[in-house]
Design a binder for these strands. Sequence first.
DNA 1: AATGAATGAGCTTTCATTCAT
DNA 2: GATGAATGAAAGCTCATTCAT
Lengths: 223, 223, 223, 223
Amino acid sequence: MARPAAARVGSRSPATDQRKKLIGATERLLGSQGLGCVTTRDIARAAKVAEGALYHHFHDKAELILSVVLHQLGDFPGVLQSLPLQVGQNTVEKNLGRVLESAFAFHHRMAPLVCSLFADQELLGRVRSMMHERSMGPARTTSVIAAYLRAEQQLGRVTPAAVPETVADLMLAVSFNTALRDHFFQGGSGGEAKAHRQLREAVRALVVGLGPKNEGKRAREKR
Amino acid sequence: MARPAAARVGSRSPATDQRKKLIGATERLLGSQGLGCVTTRDIARAAKVAEGALYHHFHDKAELILSVVLHQLGDFPGVLQSLPLQVGQNTVEKNLGRVLESAFAFHHRMAPLVCSLFADQELLGRVRSMMHERSMGPARTTSVIAAYLRAEQQLGRVTPAAVPETVADLMLAVSFNTALRDHFFQGGSGGEAKAHRQLREAVRALVVGLGPKNEGKRAREKR
Amino acid sequence: MARPAAARVGSRSPATDQRKKLIGATERLLGSQGLGCVTTRDIARAAKVAEGALYHHFHDKAELILSVVLHQLGDFPGVLQSLPLQVGQNTVEKNLGRVLESAFAFHHRMAPLVCSLFADQELLGRVRSMMHERSMGPARTTSVIAAYLRAEQQLGRVTPAAVPETVADLMLAVSFNTALRDHFFQGGSGGEAKAHRQLREAVRALVVGLGPKNEGKRAREKR
Amino acid sequence: MARPAAARVGSRSPATDQRKKLIGATERLLGSQGLGCVTTRDIARAAKVAEGALYHHFHDKAELILSVVLHQLGDFPGVLQSLPLQVGQNTVEKNLGRVLESAFAFHHRMAPLVCSLFADQELLGRVRSMMHERSMGPARTTSVIAAYLRAEQQLGRVTPAAVPETVADLMLAVSFNTALRDHFFQGGSGGEAKAHRQLREAVRALVVGLGPKNEGKRAREKR
DNA sequence: AATGAATGAGCTTTCATTCAT
DNA sequence: GATGAATGAAAGCTCATTCAT
């Protein structure tokens, strides 16, 4: 029980350790149980930590949940960062498709938790203000994609008639929705394959548009 | 047994009355408190009904919630029934814009409750199977819109390169997402105006597509 | 619903009818469910009577139970009445054995309900005073058997050293106990046969006594 | 973890303390209120313990009751262990009388609770299987007494015509019944004296038997 | 008289939080 | 800091009883 000092060398302080264990355990439990059914006892047991320890690291349960939300929202895939580098490379469709795949992975992971928040308006409010303070939210993602699209407009690879923000929004919407639908109807296990096909088709639909005359050439030239 | 006719005039059967009051009160409370925080006591008080009455009309709390979900989900498809009549009328963009407005109203109303369900996987499961039994779900809406698009393809007002289901999905995704975002970030009070503008732009983006060469004529001819 | 007058001719008044149905239904339910789990709703349903009707015939649930207890205690087997006629007939052992069989049937039927009363001291109190008022109770049975034994003592078929009341008590005790044990350990379904054998042996034990010298003759002569 | 030794001196572990307090309080309440009327709130209050504490020590209310039953049933057999030592000592009648006194104390204490169980068949079922698992039950007591009787038969102090098991059953039956009758008719307060006299007489009745010829000698020789 | 929808006090149980060790 | 037994408010639900019809 009295851990030899040496054992600590090279490892984080136990305090930080517990914090991480708690956040990790909560994330794991939320993957299978729904925010409303995860108790502090469950969390403590899953984290192999005493129930009281939770209150050394977080003011209350809500703050722990908040931290988990933050943790989940924080790890948005790095693929976005490489997007500016893709300008002019490959095809626009392919680049957008790749972004969408990353976005989907992210959305699929965090959708249940984010939605769960609606069950507790107070908690939702706290998340809201926390995100406001740190200016987090989908706006960042949107603007990265929009910036990419604008750059492609400069190169003439995207029509100037397109509104970059709107297109970016559409893409993220379809990604989030596909993820949510999967959780709602298949319990989150509805083969990635199907989802990815849907996303590719969504990008195609955006690229193609509905206009009556643009059937021929373009539809095939960039596949 | 032979209740005087006069006693019934102007009043529904009291049984049905209480049922409706309970569903109504629950809907109202869910608008402000989040599924996880609405207690049977709150509901009974808001409905001006004894707590026990809840259990005359519903087997348990979950069944009441289920009825509310059903009530909320139930009244949307009706709006869509006029869509087939629009084929060939006005412009495609205008017709889709109108559909999207109805969809948005619907999504905005029910998003918090539907999302709340993720906090309670058991309840979610019951909703899932209820929707399965009655073959409800977004697929219905999608296919109505897709059918419309196919009809317009026949008339040459929509490019045959578009995949109707995918386009319909994109539209509904953006509607739901706009609604959800409004609740998440503005607490559900974020001016309809802004949302409607976003939806109109989304339809435009779909109509326009991204292709580099279709800037000129079409972009303006159907405004 | 408006029953023709003729239909009532020759039948008891409906009021009495309902009373009987309620008592009967309660008896039936108590046979399978235990006093604490029988609700007024169960009773009304089983009696095919409205829940409210119960309160037309009984002041409250306890009074209904009281009536059931009374009804059960009331039908003690007629065999006891014929016991005085058996004096000097057959063998003492046989006569006592026959009485014990009747007593056992009675005890087996009423034991669960009587014991249930201990779960509600107030109800038990009401039963107690009701029985006191009507001077019911096992004392009556005991004295009938004791009277029989005394008569046999006069005839020299029972030793004057036996105390009739005590012997009667012993017999009734073993009957009640056998019944109770059956309910406790076999759920009330433990073959009558086994119980009857035990009772016959109990009578034999009483007849034989333990005295060290009375092994031979008598033990066999009255079999 | 390293609790100072002094802190433990003179006090049991608090956990065990609460457990005992709960069982004790429940026993006390059952003495005056009847199983069906003892609520968890009552118990917690009587034990001077928070209501939630009950669920740290017992899975549910039934398990607490089970523990109480076990506690009551548990401490009887010990009294009987001295019986084998009495073989050949004193008189058979006296030895049996002494056993019966212990049995009666035991029966008088536990009768109301055991009977209460008939009000809740589910609980009764759990007690049944618990007793089955631990092979408890009156059979044990019976066989101890029967063994004693058999030993006395070897010594010629008990007639070989007696069936030891049956005699033992008779004795226990009369003990239990006297106890139950006392609770039923006098509310458990009917002088011990009277009960003891009845028991002594019951033993006498067994020893004497009913046989017509064994009046003289034996009846007096062992008083 | 008869009905059964409505009542609401009260039950068992859960769980976020505290605090002596 | 760390522990986990203890707390007690509050939840969902039951059921004897009432009363308008």
